[in-house]
Nucleic acid binder design. Structure first.
Lengths: 223, 223
DNA sequence: GCGCCTTTGGTGACCAAGTCACCGAGGCTT
DNA sequence: AAGCCTCGGTGACTTGGTCACCAAAGGCGC
């Protein structure tokens, strides 16, 4: 096991320049948590008492609609913070989204008290927090833009390229891809069938391989 | 003219409990601006040096797509702050949205320096800022949910009820309504024609009147 | 008032996407 | 082997977005 508890601070770009005394406070005033894949990291109605900085793994943030369906909002990767909980932490408002660990995760939990003290004391920490916010907001803007103006086939191609590992394999059912893009499974099935027809992918149950990345990339580029 | 410069602080719910010394600093370290309807309040690429707190009027925040079309994101009303500029202010990231004064506006401009000092010094101010952020983010979540799952007729009915004045009049062209909802003008025309057929509205050039609010409200409620 | 132009709104044809209902294949359990 | 559940495929239909075009309404100069 790597020594996360020693210098995890340097894993966060925006925190590298924290002065030594603040670093000490941060290390002291926070703790490291682990959770297995599938854990509900946060949920509506459950007031958050910690800001989470993700060390390992990824967290899927989604919104549950009243109608029972779900919209994928964004994914928090290692090295990023889950600012949604910050919002909740200080404003005491309930949020409408929930977060689920997609993999086993390790994260630093900064309790409200420590967070507030650091925001007051350190300009570097403030910038870190506001940068994280601004990035999320602009991500959401981009998402909205995509949803409204982008064709589904282009969005699916983009997502496949993102999700593929080095070997070009994407492990996901059509239903999962549909929920990532906020569309219906049938639409994914039809679009993937078309990609296959064009020789860009090969499908098997629960996964697919990109065998013609170039085609997908061209579709994305020309969008 | 009302004495905005004296006690505008009390117009903001979250700031009412600022202690006197902080209030003084805030008043000293900020200034009041006015702008006529149509002014571009902020724009992509233009780095923001002020946090704006809106005293009078409303600002429309929208995202310009690469394809030239626009998506309406949200509206900032009097008594609210435009946190998007905050994000930009501290993180130095460019944002992708622009803001346009829909009416003549008056706003308090808090320069970066004052803003940063206040965030450091005052817990009340911190809460105010984070609450504003969290509200915007949850608003965006709701917007995404609406776009993905809600039918256009329901969304249009909702918007008409919001935009109507006391007499039930909505002053807006079909094109404006279309851009508010991120759809095409033709769709608005068709939907409004249907509302008219049902006796819910009456149309004339550039405006319409709700003559059957109950019908619209029922549609929204049952959505 | 009269022409001229711009803005606004209406329409039909077509395409993309979401919905509904249903089915069949693959894999797992017992 | 039988039963079951998950996954994916399909056709018919509705909704929404796009395109091309037109007509009516209002503003403006003269």
């Amino acid at each position: 096991m790597e020594p996360f508890d020693i210098d995890w601070i340097d894993r966060f770009e925006g925190l590298k320049r924290l002065p030594p005394d603040i670093r000490a406070d941060l290390t002291q005033g926070s703790q490291i948590l682990s959770a297995p894949a599938g854990t509900q990291i946060f949920a509506p109605g459950q007031s958050a008492d910690n800001l989470l900085l993700l060390l390992e793994g990824s967290v899927r943030v989604q919104q549950k609609s009243d109608t029972g369906r779900e919209v994928f909002l964004y994914r928090v990767h290692a090295g990023e913070s889950c600012v949604l909980t910050t919002a909740c932490m200080l404003s005491f408002e309930d949020y409408a989204a929930d977060g689920i660990a997609e993999t086993d995760v390790r994260a630093v939990a900064i309790p409200r008290k420590t967070f507030d003290a650091l925001v007051a004391r350190s300009a570097v920490f403030r910038t870190f927090v506001f940068t994280a916010y601004s990035r999320r907001i602009t991500d959401l803007f981009t998402l909205i833009d995509d949803i409204v103006f982008q064709r589904m086939d282009v969005r699916l191609a983009t997502r496949l390229l993102e999700l593929a590992d080095e070997t070009g394999t994407v492990v996901a059912t059509h239903a999962i891809l549909a929920s990532e893009l906020g569309t219906a499974r049938e639409v994914i099935s039809r679009t993937l069938a078309e990609f296959q027809r064009r020789g860009w992918i090969e499908q098997s149950r629960g996964k697919l391989s990109l065998i013609g990345r170039a085609g997908l990339e061209r579709m994305v580029r020309l969008a």
